[in-house]
Simulated scan of single mutants.
Amino acid sequence: MNWDDMKVFLAVARTESLTAAGKSLRVDPATVGRRVARLEEELGAVLFAKSPQGYAPTDAGQRLLSHAERAEQAMQGGADAVSGTPGELSGQIRVGAPDGCANYVLPQVCARIMDANPELEIQIVSLPRDFNLTKREADMAITVSAPTAGRLTVQRITDYHLTLGASEQYLAHAPAIERLSDLSAHRIVGYISDMIFDKELDYLAEFGIGRVHLASNSVSVQLNWIRGGAGIGVVHAFALPAAPGVVTVLPKHRLSRSFYLVRHADDRRLDRLNRFSAILTEGLRQEVALLEAAT
């Protein structure tokens, strides 16, 4: 079997689309289709069932998928063993993360990792949703809850805290806030309720807040509204150093959440990813502690 054909097979199996597979491989969809047809002819088996929803692996395709993924890991492991400076990490690693972590914690941590490993290429994918590691949307993902399904390894990284926050500008002209019930007289910034992708992010009710006046699925948008004096919202304590002029409101009322590192179970065989994940988790612990101490 031609390894290039196997890479095409993996891309289609993960994206379930010739167009998306072609985009990831930087070839046109017609070429992807021809390569799949060639592989099917060589193996004497239909690997994908085409439907309006896309290309879903058949039973034969599913059986081939596990072998193809092991071959991919072996190829990557071989490349890692001979590339770069001994002792240093190299190659590309993609990390998925919720946008709070991706905007206010990961950049500093990854920059320090790059300082020690200049041949490494780190990509941060910041999206307000869960990542599908089975489809290789990322090499690893940081999440706010521990997944319970799939062939995944889950490691708790660290706790972090959330508090109510508002700008000094807003508070100077707003009704006084002495207890949670006083929040009903204020404009609230928060998530769009039907776009909350993880139950751990549905925290306004814990502050007794029902109605959200200014809503976004982005933590950064919410924080910018709060910085601009638009209202009161829940902010990450680790984001406060990046938001001068924003102060905590009712500081005794705060929530605790956790970050988890999630990886595909088969990736435990890859020394490069094991080493990177160890450095990343320790860096995240230190950075969250440093940023929260600053507030």
Results as ranks from 00 to 15, higher is better:
Ala265Gln: 10
Ala79Asn: 11
Ala293Gly: 07
Arg35Pro: 07
Arg285Gln: 13
Tyr104Gln: 03
Arg272Ile: 07
Leu127Gly: 00
Leu127Lys: 14
Ala21Ile: 05
Gln286Trp: 04
Cys110His: 06
Arg272Cys: 10
Ala215Ile: 06
Gly78Tyr: 02
Phe9Pro: 00
Met195Phe: 10
Leu273Gln: 06
Asp266Trp: 10
Ser277Gly: 10
Val27Gln: 06
Ala45Asn: 09
Glu119Trp: 06
Val95Ile: 15
Ser66Trp: 15
Gln169Pro: 01
Asp99Pro: 04
Asp99Leu: 03
Val288Glu: 04
Ala237Trp: 01
Leu214Phe: 14
Val221Asn: 08
Gly96His: 08
Ser256Tyr: 02
Leu162Pro: 00
Leu18Ile: 08
Pro107Asn: 05
Val36Arg: 01
Leu214Lys: 12
Arg38Asp: 09
Glu200Arg: 13
Val144Asp: 02
Tyr203Glu: 13
Val46Phe: 08
Pro52Trp: 02
Pro244Ser: 05
Lys135Gly: 12
Leu261His: 00
Val154Met: 09
Phe238Tyr: 13
Ala166Met: 03
Leu250Gln: 05
His253Pro: 08
Asn132Ser: 13
Ala242Pro: 00
Ser17His: 05
Pro29Gln: 04
Val95Met: 05
Ile157Cys: 04
Asp267His: 10
Leu39Ser: 12
Gly78Glu: 05
Pro251Ser: 08
Val247Asn: 02
Glu287Met: 10
Ile226Gly: 00
Val125Cys: 10
Asp267Leu: 14
Ser184Gln: 15
Gln62Asp: 11
Arg179Tyr: 03
Val262Gln: 05
Leu65Met: 08
Ser218Val: 06
Asp130Asn: 12
Gly54Ile: 01
Pro107Asp: 02
Glu41Leu: 07
Pro118Phe: 01
Ile196His: 11
Thr153Trp: 11
Gln76Leu: 12
Val109Trp: 03
Gly96Asp: 06
Pro147Lys: 15
Tyr191Gln: 10
Pro241Met: 00
Leu127Thr: 09
Ile209Glu: 04
Glu42Cys: 13
Val8Leu: 04
Gln53Tyr: 10
